[in-house]
Amino acid sequence: MTTREPSLRADARRNREAILDAASDLFARRGESVQMDEIAERAGLGVGTLYRHFADKQALRAAIIGRRFEAMTGLARSAEQIEDAWEAFETLLHGYLESVQPDAAFRLALLGPHEPSWEAIDAAKSAFRTIVDRVVRRAVDAGHLRADFQASDFILITRGAMANMTGGQDWRRFLVLQLDGVRRRGGR
């Protein structure tokens, strides 16, 4: 449940979560070809219930992304508490990627051909981004990352790794190569 919908009744929250679970699974398996009535059927609900929660696939994809960003914000908060700046950065980066590896629907939503509707999930995305900014800044200030490294570079690295999570490609090797390139020379 997002912070934008705290007033949903318990049954409405269950229905919303069932829709998101079903949509995540179906999008992960079949991509954009999934129809809304299939999602409703998989969730065990009527299509009208689905449309009361989500006007279209774009809104549904945004909610999937928002749910993942909410989970990632918790991970980011934990990583931020780590005293060592490099360990905090690596923990956040690895934790983020390991948690999205099994979530093909999230990866498809971020990397797919359609731009997600960020307005619907702005608060969740912003909370995550704020913590990433602080973790990155600490690692730069401590001399572990190149001086020109920014939070937007964190996103570039994660998207590159996510693009390598299909077809048996080794995203962890990609990540090692990327980290070698962004570490400040002479750092630990």
Rank of each mutant, 00 (worst) to 15 (best):
H114I: 14
G181I: 04
D11K: 11
R13C: 05
R13A: 11
M1T: 12
R137I: 08
E32D: 14
L60E: 09
R172E: 06
A139M: 06
T130G: 13
L20N: 03
Q178H: 08
A22M: 05
M1I: 14
S33N: 13
M72S: 14
L145T: 03
A71M: 14
R129Y: 11
F154K: 04
R29N: 14
A28D: 10
A104Y: 12
E87I: 09
A123Q: 07
E83P: 15
I64F: 02
A127R: 15
N164Y: 07
L179D: 11
H144E: 09
K57I: 03
V140T: 06
V136I: 02
F54C: 05
L145E: 01
G181N: 08
R129S: 15
R185N: 13
L177M: 11
A127C: 08
Q150V: 07
E32P: 01
I19E: 00
T166E: 14
L97V: 08
G95V: 03
A151Y: 00
A85T: 04
I19W: 01
A28V: 11
G186I: 12
A22P: 06
R42Y: 06
R67M: 12
L75A: 06
S24T: 06
L111P: 00
L93D: 00
A55H: 08
D56H: 11
Q101F: 15
H144C: 09
E83S: 15
P6W: 03
D84Q: 08
R30K: 15
L110D: 02
R183D: 01
G112Y: 05
R138M: 04
V135Y: 00
